[in-house]
Structure formats: structure tokens, C-alpha cells
Write a protein that binds this DNA or RNA. Structure first.
Lengths: 238, 238
DNA sequence: ACCCTTGGAATTGCATGCAATGTGAGAGAA
DNA sequence: TTCTCTCACATTGCATGCAATTCCAAGGGT
């Protein structure tokens, strides 16, 4: 999921220190376990247990937990510990409302500030995804597709030239992407999705921000339609 | 600056624990000193010094610093410490771009989900602000006005029914509000600002989200115009 | 004069021990 | 049976000591 970001001169003041410090390692380890499902929602993450399993003392574990709480991965209850945040229908609604506003904003800004190098990378990603959709579609392809799609959106957002916006979207989408796959996409939906990507790049190249923004909205709304029709049962719409 | 929030059932997973724990107290104390200007931009906040001055050990200080870093107040440099984040023209641009999108979104959502009790409070705040603008305008009035204005916007955003949106705006505007006063507003600008508030409430009462959104955009753009024209000298526009 | 190296001081990073707090089980009474 | 009180346990919160790393300045070499 590293997306090979190019020339990031930014002051990455998001996830503190991805350095070799014990705290950073614990931070990543716990995050991984949340994504893995090892730590399930509402389950408490005991600092003594984590310290034992990762062979460090409780101190770096405590600091990692604090960071994860501030970033929204965990919720802290004083004198009781930190537990994995729950994911409700309301959370899904909130996140979607935000994405529907922030991602079009990002591509709109990107349309005004795009640089050739980034555009080349984006086109490359789009091409690779299109190639994937034309072959057989197994689990490996779906996984690869999800990864490339994530990189595409991420790169596009970075191109907005607004670090805060990028950070917000990062922290907002990640929670909803615990398992974002394309298994539920039929060939038509898949083709349309790829078409959207290509169209956004065309709009950006044409310096037409409004066009790009609206394609992005269509892209998100179409994706939501698929997911809500699949999940069916619980009324996710408010 | 407490705004007497009403019936907040939300899972406040923002600023960890405003409880009576030492960490929370240190957290608030440092935040206050940043706002005060006691800690200036790029200045390092040494944990030993803070611990000595607040009469606690280094442990709660360390944890408070970690939280403040995650929240964007400080930036951490591994093995070197945490220092107050700098505020550049680029930061101002990023924040304004975000506010110009997020605040209209918030009032738009609020227009669809407004409840009578909140509307009453908003009208009360607007009335009090209008009353202030009609009398003499000294420092005290400006300060009170800034406080009421902050509460008005905050309450409006809460009424959006999107906790994540509210949290984002909170974390985005606070940094730019280190000194947000109305001293540079002449009577005409002040009157227009109050008119905007009232008009937004009217639009919301009329269930007209688009109207409310556009008044908010005008409100923000007008405010920015005032600040950029006052500051003059250094070219703040990139 | 300039650069590289090498100490030492300051600071953060981590481990451990103890105190404070909250939780849950079990005993006792209504 | 059910409610309440109590007490022991588990867990977090905080303090302190030591190790690791960085920065800066002084000294020697080129």
C-alpha cells in the first residue's frame, strides 16, 4: 500500500515518526492488527499484553496508543484503556458526506496545479488498471485493482497542493477501507469506473476543474450505489 | 471560549481526555501557552522544563506532547523534541481553501437537519452580536464579538449532524484564530457580517440549503478580503 | 583559512516500580 | 430470589533511573 510517492518535500506532520523508534514500530504493529481484524471493534487493547507480545516495555506502547487515539483508530476511556473504534451506519454516512465534498475539491484544485510528472504517473496507473479489467478476474486481480485504485486516488489528492486536505482525506477514507475490494463490481461497473478515471485525467489536462469535479462526484455516487445495493439490509441512508 | 454546548451525546474522540488526569492538564496548559504566545513558532518545548514548571514528572508531559503533535499544534523531530508549528502563507491558503468548502457544506447540512432548540440559540447569539455592533466599539466589545462569533459558527457546524466534519473544522480554524479580532472591521463591514448571520438563519428556516451555503461563502470571502487588504505589505497571496 | 574529527553536554527514548482508580465477584441482608 | 455492600484484582496513571542519540564546540590536521 505504499504507492511509491514521488518527491514529497512536505512537512509530514501526520503520523509523527515512521522512524526506527520503538514507539513508531508499535504504532504500525497495532494499526496493522486493527486492519487484520486481530483487534476487533470495541475490543480493548491492553498495553501490558501488547508490550509482552512485541517484546518492549509498556512505555512505547502507551505512547503509540495515545497517537492512535488522536488519529481516530482507537477511543480512550480514562483509567480503563483504549479500544478499537466501532463502525456504525452513521459513521459510514459521515464519511461519505465528507468524501463527496472533499474529493471533488481535491481534483478541482489538482486541475489547476497539475504538473507533468504527476500526470504521467496517473496515466500509467489508469492504464495498468484498465489492462487488469480486460483479463480474467480472480481474487488476485481484485486485490491488485484495489491497490492501484487506492494509489490513483491518493496521488490525485496529493496533486491538489493542499496538505491538510490530503491528510484529512487520508484519515477519513482509511477507516472505511478496511476491506475495499472490487469483488462486487460486475464488468459494466468496472468499465464505468475505469472510464471515470480516464475522464478525470482528460478534464484535468483540459484545465477544466468543474468537469473533473463532477466526474469525481459521479464516480463516488456510482460506487456508493453498488455498495448499498449489495449490503441491502441495514438502511445506511441516514 | 466554551460556548455552552447543549446536549452533546457525541462520542468525543477528539482531544482524548479533558478529565482530571495530569496528562490532560498538561495538554491544556501547553495549548494555552501556544495561544498566549508564550511558546513562539519554531520554539522547542522541552519536556523537562514543562515538567518542572507544572510540577509533574516528564511522563505526562511526554504524552501530552505526543497528543499535541498528532493534533497539529506541534511538530516532532525524533530525538530532538517537539516545537511549535510554523504558520506560513501557504498554511493560510490551505486553511482558507478548506473553510470555503467545509463551512458551506456544514450550513447546507444544517439546513436539512436543524432542530428548533439549536435555532433558538443561534438567533439569540445573532441578536446579541447585533446589539453589540450598535453601541460604542472598544476593545471589550471587539473581544466579546469575537467570542460570540466563534460560538455562532461552532454551533452552526455542530448542527450539521456530522461529527467528523465538526472536528475537522475545529482543528482547522483554531490555528488561524490565534488572534481573530474584529478591530479591522469598519461599521459597514460589521453590519454586513451581522446581516450574513441573520440571512443564513433565514435560509435555513426556509429549508433552502443552497441559499445558506452561498451566503456562507460570501461571508467567508468578505472576511478574507478585509484581512488581506489590511495586512497589505507582504504578498500573502502565494 | 577551512574542513574533519572528537569529545562532552543536553535531550529524548525506554524500562521498571509504585500509586490511584475502576471493575467484578462474592457474601450478606431484605 | 434480588439487591447492595465490600474487598481483592486487574489495569491504567505517574515517577524515576538509565541508555541511546543528537548537537555543538573545541582541537588537530590539511
Amino acid at each position: 500500500m505504499q504507492c511509491e510517492r514521488s518527491a514529497v518535500t512536505s512537512t509530514d506532520h501526520s503520523t509523527a515518526t515512521p522512524g526506527p523508534t520503538a514507539t513508531a514500530q508499535v504504532h504500525e504493529a497495532i494499526k496493522q492488527r486493527i486492519l487484520d481484524g486481530t483487534y476487533r471493534p470495541l475490543q480493548f487493547v491492553r498495553e501490558a499484553a501488547v508490550a509482552r507480545e512485541l517484546a518492549v516495555s509498556r512505555t512505547p506502547v502507551r505512547e503509540a496508543l495515545r497517537e492512535l487515539v488522536s488519529e481516530g483508530w482507537l477511543e480512550a476511556i480514562p483509567h480503563q484503556g483504549a479500544r478499537v473504534s466501532e463502525w456504525t451506519a452513521d459513521d459510514a454516512r459521515e464519511v461519505f458526506e465528507l468524501r463527496l465534498v472533499l474529493e471533488p475539491m481535491a481534483v478541482g484544485l489538482a486541475a489547476r496545479r497539475m504538473d507533468p510528472a504527476t500526470m504521467t504517473q496517473l496515466k500509467d496507473l489508469a492504464t495498468r488498471m484498465e489492462a487488469l479489467t480486460e483479463g480474467p478476474l480472480g481474487g488476485a486481480e481484485h486485490s491488485e485493482l484495489a491497490s492501484l485504485n487506492h494509489c490513483f486516488h491518493r496521488l490525485l489528492i496529493q496533486a491538489s497542493g493542499n496538505q491538510r486536505l490530503a491528510q484529512m482525506l487520508e484519515s477519513v477514507v482509511r477507516t472505511s477501507i478496511i476491506r475495499r475490494n472490487f469483488a462486487s463490481y460486475d464488468r459494466e461497473a468496472l468499465h464505468r469506473s475505469m472510464q471515470h478515471h480516464r475522464e478525470m485525467l482528460t478534464a484535468i489536462a483540459a484545465d477544466n476543474a468543474a468537469w473533473a469535479e463532477n466526474v469525481m462526484r459521479a464516480h463516488l455516487l456510482a460506487a456508493r450505489e453498488l455498495h448499498t445495493t449489495i449490503v441491502t439490509s441495514p438502511d445506511t441512508a441516514r
